[in-house]
Design a protein around this nucleic acid. Structure first.
Lengths: 259, 259
DNA sequence: GCTTGACCCTCACCTAACGTCAGGCGGTAT
DNA sequence: ATACCGCCTGACGTTAGGTGAGGGTCAAGC
């Protein structure tokens, strides 16, 4: 056996590289969660590599929201080997990721609502992360957006909006509404060239700002305007029948383009 | 103007749909963070839609680690409009996501270390999320793994290991080591057919369990075994010179296969 | 050898964000 | 009318540390 030079670190060192405060380390010792391997002559705490290892695990579980005494029982359970921990931590991280994604989804729902101007119910607003099932969520997103690529694009773009862009998009959406209303009130059929062109522009506007809006997706949107009463109510607010008119134009345009 | 039937909810209702406790709502009222719009005759708290809206924002910021009084100043700042909040929340979520990804990366580094048996330094172990720069991280990963696809695969696979798989991989790695050591000790040249075949098997084993291991990547690994003293030390622990021997075999095999 | 400044020690009290009773009123369904 | 559930207001407890006070320690420079 070659000599073992076990490097030992002081509280300050450990605090420095781990990012926790010295006080926190004191605290962890007091509650028995992380007792340093030894002390120097002067009484300085000396942390071994194993201590750092343990601290790293502690920080993982702490970040994931475990109470400190829970972490202690987890770490001190002799039943558990390293693999067990890595496994659990991975699972927990996955859940965490899902939670964040739920928040992102909720945020985007709100941005969208804010944009199109309809009001969320308190239930919708407060469903920020509770009872979140990632699988169901993915399905819902896929169902809603037709395919997940488009959805991802939406996220990617949403992330890069500037304030000006945001305002511009809203103005543009208003302009669209105005044009559609005008056409409808003038009695122009939704299937006319002019109105279909407007629908085409609408789809391209979405592509520019939100996600690659395929005709399939655009059709889906049109359907939603009519089928989802919250959308319908908002769209029909100023001009009754606009939602249906919009849908007809969108579908006609999609059919024409794809034929 | 049509009549406005502002629905109002009791504490219990709000607690139910938001997932926070009644006590929490009491607390938020006491500190002035969320004061319900009104009270019923009996003194029941009545929360309006706007209150729910505010609560939703509060929960966002809370989840992101803001202190409650900080949240109050954020929400009550008249300078800030809705967009400001959405914008900030998005940024914060992105940071959060990066943090989780850093943890995942750190976890995978540890799994890998555990697998190949080398010991991380305390610094490495404790670098769980601090000072994380996603760009730098990606670069490092790319540099290390040659291209990012392979790296992503590694992550994808790592996520699906079972305990048995994990043990099997370790056993297999040990078996490889044994075979290489035997060959080396027997004086078999690293460039011999037999040893190159072993190297090929090694690469395929990695492909099976970690990521599509191209010859380029495999060569990179071999180089790392020699260049990274931590790897070298661990590999040479039982059989001095094994790291260099391994590298020679891997490179020879890759050259042969690609010619 | 002495000082200085960064770092360490141990109490000890303070805080944030709730959890958890206790004791009592209000509403409503049987 | 009773029973039960949900609501009310204190008030104390708890977790995970923050923030000094008062006092040793160590390495560098004069």
């Amino acid at each position: 056996m070659s000599e073992l030079i076990a490097r030992s670190l002081t509280v300050g060192n450990v605090a420095g590289i781990s990012g926790v405060s010295v006080r926190t380390l004191h605290h962890y010792e007091k509650i028995g969660l992380l007792v340093p391997a030894g002390r120097s002559d002067a009484g300085y705490r000396l942390y071994s590599d194993a201590d750092c290892d343990r601290l790293s695990r502690i920080l993982y579980y702490r970040e994931l929201g475990f109470p400190l005494d829970g972490i202690a029982t987890l770490l001190d359970d002799p039943q558990q080997d390293r693999y067990e921990h890595l496994e659990r931590q991975r699972t927990l991280l996955r859940e965490r990721l899902a939670r964040i994604q739920a928040m992102v989804a909720s945020l985007e729902r709100e941005m969208e609502a804010h944009m199109t101007g309809y009001n969320l119910t308190p239930e919708e607003r407060l469903d920020v992360f509770g009872d979140f099932d990632p699988a169901q969520y993915e399905d819902e997103a896929r169902e809603r957006w037709g395919e997940s690529d488009a959805f991802k694009q939406s996220q990617a773009r949403a992330r890069s909006y500037t304030k000006e862009g945001w305002k511009a998009i809203q103005a543009e959406m208003d302009r669209f509404n105005g044009l559609f209303v005008k056409a409808m009130n003038a009695g122009t059929p939704a299937t006319s060239q002019a109105v279909m062109a407007l629908a085409e522009e609408h789809s391209q506007h979405i592509s520019r700002w939100f996600y690659e809006c395929s005709y399939e997706i655009h059709r889906g949107l049109g359907t939603m305007y009519v089928d989802d009463p919250r959308f319908t109510a908002n769209i029909d607010k100023d001009a009754p029948g606009l939602a249906a008119y919009l849908r007809e134009a969108i579908v006609a345009n999609a059919d024409r383009a794809e034929s």
